[in-house]
């Protein structure tokens, strides 16, 4: 609401509206020749296509669909099973003192791990905290992408870009928190069939920018399928909880600094009680966050 905005924001909104009005209009309507399902030779060249296949720009954490397969239908392969496709080697390496992330996040020191993808440099993984539906929750992170997790093992799938992950020139398709016993992960859906041996419970595949479906399958050493992961259609959020409702009522200015409140509470608690009190401090920060939200209304 404009009335609640300060002058810089009012100026910005007004400038954007007027500048947007100067944008060019579409020169033509969609025609069959634009349809990418037609052979490419029939399509008109477009300037951006070549560049678009380079490094993508933003990290993407999507809804994760991981399916653990443990049913009797699982087919077991001979013991010397090796997935088909091209192996992308991964090397465990020492983590940095500080994960690559801006703003710096409070990090569970014991959670930090790192791997090296050839030609891509070092990729950090770690556990941090964030706000989710009005609560302070633990999140599994790679640089530029975090997702809340429940249960004892941080696990998520992320596609991080070269801009965000700070590791090199390629986007990385990452799966952390692999099931115990995972010996190989095969990635399907890109231009090539790739596979990797996990390190530190994770895999990281360099891939081209592609929003299409990518599926990964985790196998044990004998070739039994342990789990699959893919980009899933976003699931509907459950009903609004009282805490989430409270959060939604906060003015925008308060939401803007909520992360600082959580960060400050976590750092204060960890300084007083030590890194081993991480789990307790998440609870402390959650309680403090509730009090703070109530004070903002």
């Amino acid at each position: 609401m404009t009335v609640a905005l300060n002058r810089a924001e009012v100026r910005l909104r007004s400038a954007l509206r007027e500048f947007a009005a100067l944008a060019p209009r579409a020169e033509s309507q969609w025609t069959d020749s634009d349809d990418p399902r037609r052979p490419s030779a029939e399509r008109p060249p477009r300037r951006l296509v070549a560049g678009a296949l380079g490094a993508a720009a933003l990290a993407l954490t999507g809804a994760l669909l991981v399916t653990h397969d443990a049913g009797p239908w699982t087919m077991r392969s001979p013991p010397l099973f090796v997935p088909t496709g091209v192996e992308v080697p991964l090397t465990a390496t020492a983590p940095d003192d500080r994960p690559w992330e801006q703003p710096p996040l409070v990090v569970n020191a014991g959670s930090m791990a790192a791997v090296t993808v050839p030609g891509q440099g070092r990729l950090m993984t770690y556990v941090s905290v964030g706000e989710y539906r009005g609560h302070v929750v633990q999140e599994s992170c790679v640089p530029g992408a975090c997702a809340p997790f429940s249960g004892p093992r941080p696990s998520f799938v992320a596609l991080t870009s070269s801009v965000e992950n700070g590791t090199g020139s390629s986007n990385l398709w990452i799966w952390t928190g692999l099931p115990d016993g995972t010996a190989f992960v095969q990635l399907q859906g890109t231009n090539r069939l790739l596979w990797q041996r996990p390190e530190s419970g994770m895999v990281a595949f360099p891939i081209d920018f592609e929003l299409g479906r990518i599926d990964a399958v985790a196998f044990d050493a004998a070739g039994a399928q342990l789990a699959t992961a893919s980009w899933a259609t976003r699931t509907e959020e459950p009903d609004v909880t009282p805490r989430e409702g409270l959060y939604r009522q906060l003015p925008q200015a308060a939401k803007d600094v909520a992360w600082q409140v959580i960060d400050t509470e976590m750092r204060s608690c960890l300084a007083a009680r030590g890194d081993e009190a991480w789990d307790d401090c998440v609870g402390v920060a959650d309680d403090a966050f509730l009090v703070w939200m109530q004070s903002q209304l």
């Binding site: 933003l58 990290a59 954490t61 964030g130 706000e131 530029g144 965000e164 803007d256 992360w259």
Partner: peptide
């Protein structure tokens, strides 16, 4: 493709 808290 970032967290909501990062947006803020």
């Amino acid at each position: 493709g970032v967290r909501t808290v990062t947006v803020r």
